[in-house]
Nucleic acid binder design. Structure first.
Lengths: 246, 246
DNA sequence: CAGTGGTCTAGACCACTGT
DNA sequence: CAGTGGTCTAGACCACTGC
C-alpha cells in the first residue's frame, strides 16, 4: 500500500532519530542503500529527496549525504488545518465563533477571492485554543459559493475544514501564507488575554481548491509565546520567500 | 551548462508568466512535454517537480497539472544573505556594526553552536537597511573558530557572508529559521525608528556549513512594515484527500 | 584516483481522474 | 473507459569530492 520510497524514507528518519546517524554523520551511498533495500537507485533517490526537503539531511554532488538535524521541526511542510496541526502535536484544538455576518466584498476581498466587488461575503470571527488556552484570533472571509455550507456549522466546531469536507467534499488543497507582526488591538487583546499593543504573529493566508480556486482568505493572529513557525533553508532550494512591503 | 530539466522548468515558468497558461489552466501532459522537448518523461518530471515545490502548479495523480499562480515573489533561493537578497530585488543593502565584544558562551549559545560552555564568543550588533532606511536589527553570535575572520571586518561591510567566503572559503550552506513576534525594546526602537513596544518580526536562525557544523546564530528583528515572509503550501498524502464526501 | 551524487533514458505497471 | 500522473527498473555518462 505505502510506496517503497516512502517506506525507505520512514526507515531513514527513524534511524536518524534513533541516533544511528548522528548530526554530522554521513549516510550510506545511494548504491549501498539500494542494495540494502533491494530497490533501484531511483527509488532511493526519491526517499532521500524527501529528507532533504525536510532539512534533515544535506546533499552535494560528489560527497556523501550528511545528517543536519536529528529531528523534524513542526513546519509548513504540509498544509494542515489548525485542528489537524494541533492533533499532530498531541494537543487539543478548540474553536468558538464570536461573530458571523455578511458584508459586500471590498476591492481587496474581490481580488483575493477572484470574485466581483460588492458580492455579499460571509465574515467569521473565531477564537481558537490549544488545550483550552486561547492562542489565535481568526478573521475569515469565505467565497460566496461555499458560505451556505459554512453558515449553519456549530459555533464550537473544532475543525471547519473537516466538517466542510464531510458536508460538501471540498478539499483545501493549497495555501499561500504571508507572515508578519502586528500590535494587538483592543479586541485581540481581550480575546487572547494579552495586553493591548502587545506583539502578535500575523498570518494572512488564501486557501484554494486543487485547481487554484480561492475558497477563503483569513487574517490569523497568534500569541507569539504559544506559536512560532520554523523553516529550513538550503543553498539550492527552499519553500520560503522573503518579501518587501509593497 | 544548464541541466535539461532546469531549461524546461525555466521555459514553463516563462510560459506561465506570459499568460500562456493562466491561473486555473491545465498544463500539457508529461508525455506531451517530453515529446515537445525531445527528452524522456523522467526529465520532464524533474522540471515540473521544481514548479510544484515553488507553488506555481498543483499536481494530483490522474489529473493534469493545474496552474495555481502566475508569478513568484523574489525567492531567496540560494540561501541568500541579506545583502544578496536585497541586490536580487534591485535594492541597496547597507550594514553598520554598532557593538562588538566577546562574552563567555551561555548554555543556550553552547547548545546552538555545538560548543563548550564558557567558550569566549564574538557577539556583534548590526543595523541593516534597504536603500538607506533601517529595517533590521541583527544580534549575531559567531562560533569561536570563525570569529578571528569576522572581527577585523569593516564595520560598514555590506555583506559579511561574501567577505567571509572570499577570506576563508567558508560556505553558509544551511539555515534553520524560527519565526515569531516580539515587542521592540528601547534600543530596537531607537535603531529602527519605531515606537517602543511596537511589534517586530523576529527570526532566530542558526546557519551551518555543508556538513551541519554551526557557524553562527542570530536574533534578527525586522520592521514588519518593511519585510514579511511568504510560505507556499500544498496538501500532502492526507486522509482528507482520499475520503469521499458523505 | 576511485567513489559519489546529478542527470538522463526507455521502457513498464498501477492508481486515480474525468468523461 | 481512455488519459494521466505516481512508482519503479536497469542501465548509462558526467561533474564533483575527497583522499
Amino acid at each position: 500500500m505505502t510506496a517503497r520510497h516512502e517506506q525507505i524514507a520512514t526507515e531513514l528518519r527513524r534511524a536518524i532519530r534513533r541516533g544511528e546517524y548522528p548530526v554530522g554523520a554521513r549516510l550510506p551511498a545511494e548504491t549501498e542503500l539500494a542494495a540494502r533495500h533491494g530497490v533501484s537507485r531511483g527509488t532511493v533517490r526519491q526517499a532521500v529527496a524527501a529528507l532533504t526537503a525536510e532539512g534533515l539531511i544535506g546533499s552535494r554532488q560528489g560527497a556523501r549525504r550528511v545528517v543536519l538535524a536529528g529531528h523534524r521541526s513542526q513546519s509548513f511542510a504540509e498544509l494542515r488545518s489548525f485542528a489537524q496541526w494541533a492533533q499532530a502535536m498531541g494537543r487539543e484544538a478548540t474553536g468558538r465563533v464570536l461573530a458571523q455576518e455578511y458584508r459586500p466584498a471590498t476591492p481587496e476581498d474581490a481580488a483575493r477571492l477572484h470574485l466581483a466587488e460588492h458580492t455579499p461575503l460571509l465574515h467569521v470571527l473565531r477564537v481558537r485554543g490549544l488545550d483550552g488556552e486561547p492562542v489565535l484570533v481568526e478573521r475569515t472571509v469565505y467565497a460566496d459559493w461555499i458560505s451556505p455550507a459554512v453558515e449553519p456549522l456549530d459555533p464550537d466546531c473544532a475543525s471547519v475544514t473537516q466538517r466542510l469536507h464531510e458536508e460538501t467534499g471540498l478539499v483545501f488543497a493549497h495555501g499561500e501564507h504571508v507572515i508578519d507582526a502586528v500590535a494587538a488591538g483592543a479586541r485581540d487583546a481581550a480575546l487572547l488575554a494579552v495586553r493591548r499593543t502587545s506583539p502578535l504573529l500575523r498570518v494572512r493566508r488564501v486557501t484554494t481548491t486543487h485547481d487554484g480556486r480561492p475558497v477563503e482568505w483569513s487574517d490569523d493572529r497568534y500569541r507569539p509565546d504559544a506559536v512560532s513557525f520554523t523553516v529550513h533553508n538550503a543553498i539550492g532550494h527552499n519553500p520560503l520567500v522573503r518579501t518587501t512591503a509593497g
